[in-house]
Design a protein around this nucleic acid. Structure first.
Lengths: 111, 111
DNA sequence: CTCCTATGCTACAATAAATGTAGCAACACG
DNA sequence: CGTGTTGCTACATTTATTGTAGCATAGGAG
């Protein structure tokens, strides 16, 4: 059997103290609505309420939590007058997901 | 309470009333451990227990749930003798995330 | 055969996270 | 002034996840 049991630490407490950035990133992106928020901002800034609407009326509690986390992560920023928008870093990350739309179409046809 | 579209594939599209494939995909990937599981399988199959170990000892309950969802989504498959591995489709999706590691390194340096 | 180990998987109570509803303060218009 | 929108919060209810234990099956040794 393939074994590669990397000796890994503790609790899956939000943040992954493994020291490996990619794990922290996967953890961040794996929280509910995070990917969706970044996706919805791909074409420009949205106000927090427009974002909630775009995200199937997600509860303001978790939406606000995610926005704070994403801001702290430097992926989005609050632009007075325009709502939330991607930072340069966030834009860069979002480019990674651009092929996702095309993939999703293919994927939905195969399942 | 009702936050469900009229009649839809409940599991694959939770959180998306739209039925747009990319939303279903973002929703699937946004569940805890999903991204991580795909990531950990990037270099080859792992048994369910090796996967749990690799994923910070995630609880078997949710791990098993995610594995079922990912199997149903056609992204991973159970290879008797080798554990879980990516399907062609899963491999394809994973390629999308390949630049993620490099990005995570840059990202961690900017925050 | 029995014993040992590992696999995929499940039960279930405890805990953490998300939802839904309501509302606040600040700011901009009329 | 009143009306509307913004970002954001409180809080009780509901849902998701965790942690621990365990089951059934399969493959080797011994």
């Amino acid at each position: 059997m393939p074994k590669q049991a990397p000796v890994m630490k503790k609790r899956a407490v939000r943040g992954s103290r493994t020291g490996r950035p990619v794990m922290a990133l996967l953890d961040l992106l794996g929280r509910r609505w995070t990917l969706r928020i970044l996706w919805e901002l791909r074409e420009g800034p949205l106000t927090s309420r427009a974002l909630r609407t775009a995200c199937d009326e997600a509860s303001p509690t978790v939406m606000q939590t995610r926005l704070s986390e994403l801001r702290e992560a430097g992926l989005i920023e609050l632009l007075p007058g325009d709502g939330y928008g991607l930072t340069g870093l966030g834009l860069e990350l979002n480019e990674t997901f651009l092929p996702l739309h095309r993939f999703a179409e293919r994927w939905s046809k195969q399942i």
